[in-house]
Simulated scan of single mutants.
Amino acid sequence: MPRRKPEKLIRWRIVAGIAIPIFEFFGRYRMRGLDNIPKRGAFVISPNHITNFDPLTTAYLVWRGGRVPRFLAKASLFKVPALGWLLRFTGQIPVVRGGGGPDPLAAATRLIAEELAVIVYPEGTLTRDPDEWPMRGKTGAVRLALEHGIPLIPMAHWGVQRILPRYGGRLRFFPRSDVEMLVGPPLDLSPWAGRSDAKALSEATTALMNEIARLVGELRGETPPAERWDPLAHGQTEYGKVTPPTR
């Protein structure tokens, strides 16, 4: 049997050695459920999405769980000086909103073929739910998991919005914020195994978002809404308001 190539290459260790101390300066992070992160093989992990600080939080958790984080990230981020270089250097996957670019799921499939971890935010953007609960999800995470027969891991975090507000603003350095993170067991996808029709993908995505909401509720000590908030039902596009708010 060929020797498995290590994930935590020197470039990753260099980035982690620089980034983690800075990241830990912003908050106190409590992680639960790390045992639910597979130690080997490909998997998809799907967190809730509250602020633009979330990817750092999720990457930190996946790294502490013994794996290397790889994202489907907005293509516009790759144009940001320094950040764009870092994203390319660490093998992140650009996603063009509204299509028109390379298929991000095809790129994710290549990572899966290499038995790597892929982080997919099923909401596709920051939640629009007024109370910051997970909203209606998209089918990409479920499609990857079903197509390749790999674990789909729900994850939740709460408290990151105290470091960086949902729609921007300044990073909050002091006092350090408490951030809770919780990884759930793999979602049971057996009811939809071998299926790729729209109904199956929709049902499985609803099950995923409900489980993420349940985990968020556990962190918040609250009961989540019975149904996920739908931006289209509230006069919004998939990525934001139809009419951008004035500043």
Rank of each mutant, 00 (worst) to 15 (best):
F43E: 02
P47W: 04
T51C: 01
I14L: 15
L105T: 12
P21V: 04
D230S: 11
G149N: 03
G140V: 02
T127S: 07
Q92E: 08
D188R: 08
L9N: 14
I10Q: 10
Y29V: 01
R97G: 10
P69G: 09
L171Q: 10
V160Q: 07
Y29Q: 00
L83K: 07
R214L: 06
M31E: 10
N52I: 03
R3H: 14
M1I: 09
L111Y: 14
R220G: 07
M209Y: 10
M1W: 12
L144T: 14
D178F: 08
N36C: 02
A213I: 00
I10S: 14
H157E: 04
R228P: 11
R214W: 06
R13K: 10
S177D: 05
K199Q: 14
R4I: 13
P231A: 05
I153D: 03
A108V: 10
P47Y: 01
L201S: 14
Y239I: 06
V44L: 10
R220M: 03
R170D: 15
E180L: 02
R30D: 08
R88W: 09
G91A: 09
T125S: 13
T127W: 04
G98F: 05
T237F: 12
L83Y: 09
T139M: 02
F23Y: 12
I212Y: 09
P55G: 08
K39L: 11
A113S: 14
H157D: 01
H49I: 04
H157I: 00
P244C: 03
I18K: 09
W133Y: 11
D35R: 07
V68E: 05
T237R: 14
G149V: 05
V216E: 00
E147T: 15
A141H: 03
K79N: 15
W85M: 06
A16Q: 07
I45Q: 06
W85G: 13
R220C: 08
G159T: 01
F43H: 03
G235V: 08
V160Y: 06
E114R: 14
F43G: 07
G98A: 09
M181I: 12
A59L: 06
P38A: 15
R28E: 08
V95L: 11
A59N: 06
P165V: 02
G149D: 00
V118E: 09
G33Q: 01
S46M: 00
P231C: 01
F71W: 00
Y167S: 15
W12C: 00
G184F: 04
L219W: 01
R166C: 04
R128N: 08
S196P: 10
A113E: 13
P154S: 05
R13Q: 08
G98H: 06
A75Y: 00
F25H: 10
L208Q: 06
I37N: 07
T90K: 05
K241H: 15
